[in-house]
Design a binder for these strands. Structure first.
Lengths: 121, 121
DNA sequence: CATCTTCATCGTCTATCGACGATAGACGAT
DNA sequence: ATCGTCTATCGTCGATAGACGATGAAGATG
């Protein structure tokens, strides 16, 4: 479904979505899973279980988090589930963080504490 | 292929630390706080409370999370606490995410599911 | 059919988050 | 000294995260 793809997909990342993705990224095991998916390009849950010292159900949960955050795609194949990293989404996330950081760095105006203006995120 | 420049402070961000910072970033209110701190350069807790629809104790907690993550500095001043955004740390965090993403994108080797190698994060 | 494999889901447990109000400490002002 | 302000912390609460084992569904395979 190609609903919308206006140029860079990074800029259409609402703050809420970015927060969700960062939440998905902010876990050591999920980072490892991502790297493994990146190295393997695509693989199934069982493969991931073998690498991490975690129960299968736990890995399944972590994968679900990553999928719901949009960082990983999943496609059923036979009795398996093939997980594939979404590099675009990952790049968009990095871009989102960079944009947030730049927004924070590009506003060095020495505004006092009483300044009543804060830009909506 | 060591393309990394050891001069960047981003590289000395261990995965655990990066995860912590992303966790700190993965909250809508804390994003707003960061942006407000960026716009105000430095301000106190009370100022932040006025902007967000949160209790003072809650804001104090969020600020604590940001400080512990190293994204914000705090300095006591009289009866106040002056909070100041750490742009370097913020930049390092963005760099860390970018590095993670690039690591995931720069490994497009079509390794099969059975490949027994996964690089340590 | 019977069995094995793979996976998602359910239930459970503990720990932590995120919010609040209340409170105490530190300080300035009166 | 007393009051008001600002802040951090405590205690509490419901919700969620993160882990596990058990179970069942869906396909293989025998």
């Amino acid at each position: 479904m190609k609903m919308l793809s206006p140029a860079t997909s990074a800029e259409c990342l609402p703050a809420e979505r970015l927060a969700e993705r960062l939440g998905a990224l902010s876990h050591r095991k999920r980072m490892e899973i991502l790297r493994y998916l990146a190295a393997s390009d695509r693989c199934c849950c069982k493969d991931v279980v073998g690498r991490l010292d975690l129960a299968q159900s736990t890995v399944s949960q972590h994968l679900k988090v990553l999928v719901e955050a949009g960082l990983v795609r999943v496609k059923p194949d036979r009795q398996r589930s093939i997980y594939e990293i979404d590099r675009e989404a990952l790049a968009a996330t990095a871009q989102g963080v960079t944009a947030l950081v730049e927004a924070c760095c590009d506003e060095p105006q020495p505004v006092g504490c009483t300044e009543p203006r804060i830009r909506e995120l």
